[in-house]
Computed example of a mutant assay.
Amino acid sequence: MNYEDRDTYGIYRGQAETGGPDQRRGPGPEMMGANTLIGNDVYNHNAEDLGDIKEIMLDLRNGTVAYAVLSFGGFLGVGEKLFAVPWHALTLDTQHKRFVLNVEKEHLRHAPGFDKHKWPNMADQSWANEIHAYYGTKPHSDDPRM
């Protein structure tokens, strides 16, 4: 499923007709509604399906999107593993209306993850450091783009 399918407020209306974002008809891909991104597919650079976004985690201390919680593996929610992927590790593929995470499927299989009934303390700095090190990103406080 993609963000256009969940666009209840018409944020992206007009994009299908023009083949891409129409800046005159909404915010475009630089500014998107978080609710429309839940459920979006995530693929890697080899066009392999890595799962979908289950949640978007906001860092309320500094007003940024910190992580996308990605579901991977399992069948119909049974046996699936959740992963907090640093937001900066994802890119939006507007042509295919999905996100791209530049990791091999096997790398994600071995990523630090968690069960849907036992979420980690994402505000814990040591946990954040581990996640960012795994994906090769920097925490927001260390990121020169912030």
Rank of each mutant, 00 (worst) to 15 (best):
E55S: 15
A84R: 09
R6H: 10
I53S: 07
Y67V: 03
N121A: 10
A128S: 08
A66E: 15
P27S: 14
L92P: 01
A16C: 03
G28P: 05
G20I: 08
N40R: 00
G77T: 00
Y3M: 07
G74K: 11
K105M: 09
H88L: 08
D7W: 03
Q23W: 09
H96A: 10
G136F: 03
E106C: 04
M57G: 02
I38S: 06
T91H: 03
A111V: 01
D124F: 05
I53K: 04
A16E: 10
G74F: 10
R6M: 05
D115C: 03
N40A: 09
A16D: 11
G28M: 07
E48S: 06
H88D: 12
D142H: 04
L60C: 09
D5L: 10
D22I: 04
L70P: 06
N46K: 14
N121F: 04
A68I: 02
G20L: 06
D93K: 05
A123T: 05
H107L: 08
L108D: 06
A133E: 05
Q15R: 15
G51P: 11
K118L: 12
G74C: 06
P112K: 03
H117C: 01
D143T: 00
A84S: 12
K81T: 13
N102E: 14
V85S: 09
V69A: 12
N44D: 05
P86I: 10
A68R: 01
L50A: 01
L70S: 08
I53Y: 04
V78F: 13
E30Y: 07
G136V: 01
Q23K: 12
L92F: 06
H140G: 05
L50Y: 02
H88F: 03
T8E: 14
K97I: 02
P112F: 00
Y12N: 15
G136L: 03
I38W: 04
M122A: 02
F114A: 05
L92D: 04
H140T: 05
D143N: 15
G63I: 02
A123F: 01
F72T: 04
W87I: 04
M146L: 12
R13N: 15
D49A: 06
A128R: 15
L58R: 14
N102I: 00
R24T: 14
M31N: 15
G51V: 07
N40C: 13
T91N: 10
N129F: 01
D49G: 00
R13V: 08
A111F: 05
Y43N: 00
I11H: 14
A89Q: 04
T36G: 02
D49Y: 12
H107M: 10
W87C: 02
F114Y: 13
K138I: 00
K116M: 13
P144K: 10
D41Q: 10
G28Y: 02
I38Y: 05
A128C: 09
V65C: 09
G10P: 04
R98S: 02
G77V: 01
N44Q: 03
H88P: 01
I53H: 03
I56Y: 02
H140I: 02
N35Y: 02
V85I: 13
Y134I: 01
N129H: 09
D142R: 07
A66S: 14
L90M: 08
V85N: 08
N46I: 00
N46L: 11
F114T: 02
A128E: 08
H88M: 09
K97M: 13
A34C: 11
L58E: 03
L101E: 04
F75P: 00
L108I: 01
H45D: 13
D52T: 11
G33L: 14
A84P: 10
F114P: 12
